[in-house]
Write a protein that binds this DNA or RNA. Structure first.
Lengths: 299, 299
DNA sequence: ATAATAATTGTCATATAGTGGAATTTTATT
DNA sequence: AATAAAATTCCACTATATGACAATTATTAT
């Protein structure tokens, strides 16, 4: 009938060996708490906040438990979508897209449309039959319009952009990535969002360096690339985020190789690979090694 | 008058360039949303959930913004407490303790009492005058009773235990750390809590290895220490958590040295230090170096 | 087993969350 | 500046969240 939040709360309360009276103490009446826990009433946000404070649990953790120890819907959306993309599972992507389109039509909420477009981008990359038509110009415009309009970028905007940037024009990417960096500044201490920022910056640089098979050609984005390297170095990566530091090292190596400094670049990339091997992160090391081989092949 | 959640929501809505009607669409009436946003009404948890879904924002991010881009109270509590402890700021610790004691008396909620005890533990370590009396036996009992009673350990229990374990008897620590590991199993995919688990395991091993100035003596916890090393290796550390992997390497080195394998141990610790230096994490590298020097001094 | 006590649920009164639509203010257009 | 359109607020009303206290059920102790 109502949201089942109450039942989750009851479960947690029991696990902590706390009585209704003790949990309700100073917040609400015992009888109401009982009613809520039984799923016979909804609860006010204010009361819920205070109840959770009483058991020293924050909303995030509560909702994680409520969703049967799974992350929230939004995170799951990006997770499942990306995993379908990485597995090149066109069917799955199409299914996921339909879900979002359905929601868009049902509720009329535009964000579901954006979600569908994000999936379409992935689809167009994975599916060969798609190459001819590609994603509609107008759809891409719709997305970038939204991103330019939003004044503060949070997790959603960053992830949305992160997934679609591959299909945009480099000049647009440069502008939007700058925007992303600036408009998400206040989230620097919020791990999840900051990871998303870092990820955007990495992807931007990878994108601007260009596909491996063009490593022998000239290219023109030196200035912008160092700008984004600068963002990464000065702000985004604290000492303890070693994995990001390894990626950075690798990326600098790739950049060096792109600009003709083959030896220095190779050395950096090898160093990154060695670091991963030393720490038994073998899968990641293998991936990097493969990437390095690809580059060498095209030089 | 009410919680100010509504005002935060209004701010976010404006930043995203969304109208009342569009946000309320399919969730609640426009007039009510307006009322809520002006702070003239509280809102039901169910409605709030759906509103946030409409703008693709999860609760955690919303509350982070609501708290003026700060983490929630609970996290701040542990953060400020630990920073006062690391800075050996007795006055600050005492102040923080008084806050918790006051809340305990005011609301009668036992968890505030536990919080005060946690701070007292820190106080007793930092403050020399405290050494004579120490933390009351009965208080420590109170805490460990609570921890044994709780069926599922979340962030709070792990952090609480993490801070107090130093004062407990090794046998009790072994039991409680095992408990911690087992009773928090379902949180393995939840970064924040999993970090806390890892931290408990690290601290347990450090504690069991014993203070540096006893490195020449015999010791008896080999079996238990490998048990906890096992936990760390099998479950807690995914490939991309490099910093934990570096800590693990260091700790293994320290363990080797403790059990007489000086050369192997030194080598491992040096390797960890080198890794950090290679990634420009100099402060952390320096700390590790200092720790290694301390050990060497006592051998 | 039974009494005593603690913990939870049910009943009813009331404050307040939430709706529909009219009135007002803000924004955009000419 | 005047007008139209969009966005927001106000007002009267309904549904439901919440409290006080009685009734019931579960625990514990003897």
């Amino acid at each position: 009938m109502f949201t089942e939040y109450g039942k989750t709360l009851r479960m947690i309360r029991k696990q902590k060996g706390i009585t209704l009276e003790r949990l309700a103490d100073g917040v609400c009446s015992v009888s109401f708490l009982s009613k809520f826990e039984r799923g016979e009433s909804d609860i006010t946000l204010g009361l819920m906040t205070r109840l959770l404070e009483n058991i020293m649990m924050n909303f995030d953790e509560f909702l994680y438990i409520h969703h049967d120890y799974q992350p929230d819907k939004l995170e799951q959306f990006f997770k499942t979508t990306q995993s379908a993309y990485l597995n090149r599972d066109v069917d799955q992507l199409r299914k996921l897209k339909d879900v979002q389109l359905k929601k868009w039509k049902q509720y009329g909420v535009e964000t579901y449309h954006y979600n569908a477009l994000l999936i379409e981008v992935y689809e167009s990359i994975v599916d060969k039959d798609y190459i001819d038509k590609g994603v509609q110009e107008s759809d891409i415009r719709l997305l970038s319009d939204y991103l330019f309009r939003v004044e503060v970028w949070g997790y959603y905007e960053l992830m949305l952009y992160n997934g679609t940037l591959l299909l945009l024009h480099p000049d647009l990417v440069i502008m939007l990535s700058r925007t992303a960096y600036e408009k998400s500044a206040r989230f620097r201490d919020y791990a999840k969002v900051n990871d998303a920022i870092t990820s955007v910056l990495f992807n931007t640089i990878v994108f601007l360096i260009g596909p491996v098979n063009r490593f022998h050609e000239e290219f023109t984005y030196q200035k912008e690339i160092s700008e984004f390297f600068g963002y990464l170095e000065t702000v985004a990566i604290p000492e303890s985020n070693l994995i990001e530091r390894v990626y950075l090292l690798q990326l600098k190596g790739a950049y060096d190789m792109r600009t003709g400094k083959i030896e220095v670049g190779t050395e950096k990339m090898n160093q990154a690979i060695e670091l991963l091997k030393d720490l038994n992160s073998t899968k990641m090391a293998n991936n990097m090694e493969q990437f390095l081989m690809q580059i060498k092949q095209f030089l």
